[in-house]
Simulated assay, not measured.
Amino acid sequence: MTALGRAELTLLVRNRTALFVALLMPVAMVVPLRSTLDRFDLAGTGVTVGGALLTGAIGLVLILVVYLNLTSAFVARREELVLKRLRTGEVSDLEVLAGTALPAAALALVQCALIVVAGAAFLGTGAPPRPELLLAGVLLGTVLMTALAAATSAITRTVESSQITTMPLFLVTAAGSGLFVPLDLLPERIASVCELLPMTGAVRLVEAGLLGGAGAADWAGAALSALAWTVISVFAVRRWFRWEPRR
């Protein structure tokens, strides 16, 4: 896995488009995220602008750095017959997938840590009151986005078409999982539907870790939602993931 991860990191550094998405896109998206949050009155919701901004930024890192990059990476390695050749060696299928995902996951974790530090330094958010919930949300989100990337690659024919196949989840997550608009500001019926989206559980855990104040029932429900979607995604990968190109 270390050798696979090192090889994937080398390829990521050489791919300027993937590197731009991984390093600069999350930063660039913070500006419209901040302008969106400034339009809402957060008084009485228990959500601060700084906390909402950090929550959205971490969610964007997970979906941009992990999901988008890994979907195209899985498709590229499949079409180049790399995955097929790796399966003929000693490594297991899980190790092949995990090794491919290792650089993106590590980069996402580092960026999330930097976001929390930057928030404390420049936004006055301070240290997270529930760091264990924050860490759980980030780790669950990383695993979930990795599994969803592998599942999405099964319906993606080329690296270029991955920009299309990943767009639905990106748009749904950005609009309904609390990245740009905190769920506490939405009408109750709409919020209850948004709670069922794949990334909402992980984002809720991140929010609880950054802001505190969440009851045990709230963060337990968010964790169960994230775990349920992870199980569903892993099942989809085991059932439909393609190891070689369509002929």
Score class of each variant (00 low, 15 high):
F40H: 12
R14S: 15
T17C: 01
A43Q: 13
R39C: 01
G44A: 06
M29V: 14
F20V: 13
M29G: 09
D41R: 11
T17S: 14
N15H: 15
M25D: 09
V61G: 08
A43P: 01
V13P: 05
G51M: 07
L37K: 00
A22W: 06
M29S: 08
L23W: 13
T48D: 12
V47I: 11
L54I: 01
A43T: 13
T36N: 09
V61K: 06
T48L: 06
G44D: 01
V30C: 03
R39I: 04
L60V: 12
F40G: 01
P26L: 04
V21L: 15
A18I: 02
T10F: 08
L23Q: 05
G44F: 05
G51A: 07
P26R: 04
V31E: 02
L11K: 11
V30H: 02
T17M: 14
M25I: 13
A52G: 05
T17N: 06
L54S: 00
L19M: 15
L12E: 05
S35D: 09
A43H: 11
P26N: 02
L11Q: 13
G44H: 09
V30W: 03
P26Y: 10
T45F: 09
R34G: 05
L54R: 02
L62W: 02
T17A: 14
G50H: 04
A57K: 01
T48P: 03
L19Q: 05
G59L: 02
L64R: 06
L11E: 14
L37Y: 08
G46V: 06
T45R: 03
L24G: 15
A28R: 02
A43C: 01
L33R: 09
A28N: 10
A28S: 05
I58A: 07
L54F: 00
A28E: 00
L54T: 03
G50A: 01
L23E: 09
